[in-house]
Computed example of a mutant assay.
Amino acid sequence: MTDSVETRNFFPALQRNVTATASGSEVVSYSSDLGNGGPILTLIHGYPQSAFIWRHLIPLLQPKISLFIPELPGYGISSPISAGTGEHTKRAVGRALLDTLSQVFGTTSGAAPRKVILGGHDRGARICHRLAVDATHPDQSSIYDELNLTVEGTIMLDILPTKSQWDLFSVPAIGQGYFHWPLLANVELAVPMIQGFGVGNWVRGACLRLAGSAEDSKVRIMSEDAVETYVACFEREGTVKWTCEDYKAGAAKEVEEQKDDLKQGRRVECPALVMFSREKLGQGGKLDVEGVWRGTAGQQKDQWFGDGVEAEVVGVEGGRGHYLPEEAFDVVGEAIIKFLERLKL
């Protein structure tokens, strides 16, 4: 890389924005606007990546819909949240991203409301899940009125609901594969351990350990020096700590939030597209991912979609692993375009 990762323009075809938010985070994002007041698709990355994970999908999606692609606060490029509790919960980070989107697209300047499709992968998909649930429930939805935004759909790549994922750790093979969840949630232990192991070793290992068995999956992940870009982000001061804070928030606090959601009947009420790796998240077909989402799988009886919601749950085949935006960008891109067409926005 010829320039530093925090100032690098990953996507020359898009506008690069730096936005101060009410959360205290200065959020870097990339955007394109078709200029017709039409819908905006967010693409929110996960761990341990940056927005660069979307590089293969952008050329497929940019002609179809306006895009908003943020760098997660605390992940090496956007600064961490400092206002309020300073916790990196999915709700707090999600609201910082909505604040950024509103400023970038000027939605509070008296224009007609902009429609948003919440899309994300991994931790970014969990933010989308949180925001999609909040969007239709009065105790949390006022921010959408304030920012003049309406949520029309959500796209979640390679996740189970957070509560369901923790519940499934009672299955030894699943708990072993997700060892990093409880490790990273213990911030005080995880930070020095990762630093002692070597940040670069940790990030490279994380990127390649969850890759699928397809012959070109690792090639796609490592293309354009992407993994080294992610390493550079994580080697910046504070990134390991703040990304661990993300996992800490995703433990007890967010599990309790989702338990309360289920108790109060708060579910995803907008059309949804869920895509997952059949080989990795689906445990080679042993785990009924669709059944978990729909509340019909074994002991997993939690219903995550509202009654009558159009929700498609698609297992990606062909040896593609966790990093679907890189490994299976062609399949994912086609599915997203078809989903957008079905929404008729």
Score class of each variant (00 low, 15 high):
Lys90Trp: 03
Ser79Trp: 11
Ile69Asp: 04
Leu98Asn: 03
Ile81Gln: 09
Thr107Pro: 02
Leu72Phe: 09
Gly124Ile: 00
Ile65Asp: 02
Val116Pro: 02
Gly74Tyr: 12
Ser79Val: 12
Ile65Lys: 01
Ser142Pro: 03
Ser109Phe: 05
Gly86Val: 10
Gln140Tyr: 12
Pro70Gly: 08
Glu87Thr: 11
Val133Lys: 04
Ser79Ala: 12
Asp139Tyr: 11
Phe68Asp: 04
Ile117Tyr: 02
Ala83Leu: 07
Ser142Cys: 07
His88Phe: 08
Ser109Gly: 11
His137Arg: 12
Tyr144Gln: 05
Thr100Arg: 10
Val93Ser: 05
Leu67Arg: 06
Glu87Phe: 11
Ala96Met: 05
Ala132Arg: 00
Arg126Ala: 07
Ile81Ala: 08
Ala111Lys: 12
Ser82Ile: 15
Phe105Asn: 08
Gly120Ser: 01
Ser142Trp: 13
Ile69Leu: 09
Leu131Thr: 01
Pro70Lys: 08
Pro70His: 08
Gln103Gly: 12
Gly110Asn: 13
Pro70Val: 06
Ala112Leu: 11
Thr107Glu: 02
Thr107Ser: 07
Pro80Asp: 10
Pro113Arg: 15
Gly76His: 11
Phe105Arg: 05
Ser79Lys: 14
Phe105Glu: 02
Gly110Tyr: 13
Asp145Trp: 07
Thr107Tyr: 01
His137Met: 09
Arg123Ala: 13
Ile117Gly: 04
Gly86Glu: 05
Gly86Asp: 08
Pro138Ile: 06
Lys115Gln: 14
Lys115Trp: 02
Val133Gln: 02
Ile127Thr: 15
Ile127Ser: 06
Ala112Val: 10
His88Asn: 12
Pro73Trp: 03
Arg130Ala: 02
Gly94Gln: 02
Pro73Ala: 10
Phe68Val: 07
Gly120Leu: 00
Lys115Val: 03
Ala125Cys: 00
Gly76Ala: 11
Glu87Pro: 03
Ser102Ala: 15
Ala92Glu: 12
Thr85Ile: 04
Asp134Asn: 10
Leu118Ile: 03
Arg95Gly: 03
Ile69Arg: 11
Ala96Val: 08
Gly86Tyr: 07
Thr85Met: 07
Ala132Phe: 00
Ser109Arg: 14
His129Ile: 05
Ile143Asn: 04
Ile69Ser: 06
Gln140His: 14
Arg126Lys: 13
Ile65His: 00
